[in-house]
């Protein structure tokens, strides 16, 4: 047991959720590690890595009033967590096109075949309700060359999916 937990909190978005949830954790003596908060389709979603001497049940109980008050859903997992364990991406894949079913599945299947390890993925649907446009950004690590990955994804161009692969070179100075 490392004392690390992953809290997943979702619900209808409103101002003050982060402040109230993190205040409870702070008062309990929990330390926060890496966190992510996103608004997805009007829904609040947050994942919080927290280190705490309290048990899973104690965290659940302490957060319960805020969760109930803000009409949120809370899920807690004990995890094997580490800080200072970042991997820098070396490749980025940008995808856009008229929205259609299966874009993400088809793109990521090809990336998986090329041993591309996704570190971060975000996708969104923009445009209008009549003409939705799908946009996706993926960064990750891959030992293959940009040209090889690009060639592997090329067949998707025929389906109207625009894909650009480029290398990422993090400047260390």
């Amino acid at each position: 047991m490392t004392g690390w937990y992953m809290l997943t909190i979702i619900g209808r978005d409103q101002a003050g959720i982060v402040a109230r949830v993190t205040a409870v954790l702070y008062e309990m003596g929990c330390e926060l590690g890496e966190t992510s908060m996103l608004r997805l389709g009007g829904n609040f979603s947050m994942m919080v890595m927290t280190h705490c001497d309290s048990s899973q049940q104690q965290i659940q109980q302490q957060l319960e009033p805020v969760i109930r008050d803000l009409n949120l859903h809370l899920h807690i997992d004990a995890i094997d967590g580490h800080l200072h364990d970042h991997i820098d991406p070396n490749m980025q894949v940008s995808v856009h096109g008229a929205d259609q079913a299966g874009i993400i599945a088809r793109v990521t299947a090809i990336l998986a075949d090329n041993q591309f390890n996704i570190l971060d993925l975000e996708s969104d649907v923009g445009g209008t309700a009549q003409d939705p446009v799908y946009v996706m950004h993926i960064v990750g690590t891959c030992l293959k060359e940009v040209e090889q990955v690009s060639a592997a994804l090329a067949p998707l161009h025929a389906a109207g999916i625009q894909i650009r692969v480029r290398s990422l070179d993090t400047l260390i100075g």
């Binding site: 970042h86 991406p89 990422l168 993090t170």
Partner: peptide, 13 residues
């Protein structure tokens, strides 16, 4: 825009 890191800021880009 591009990604940077620093010898003086370990483990963060």
């Amino acid at each position: 825009i591009a990604r940077e890191g620093c010898l003086s800021v370990p483990d963060f880009t």
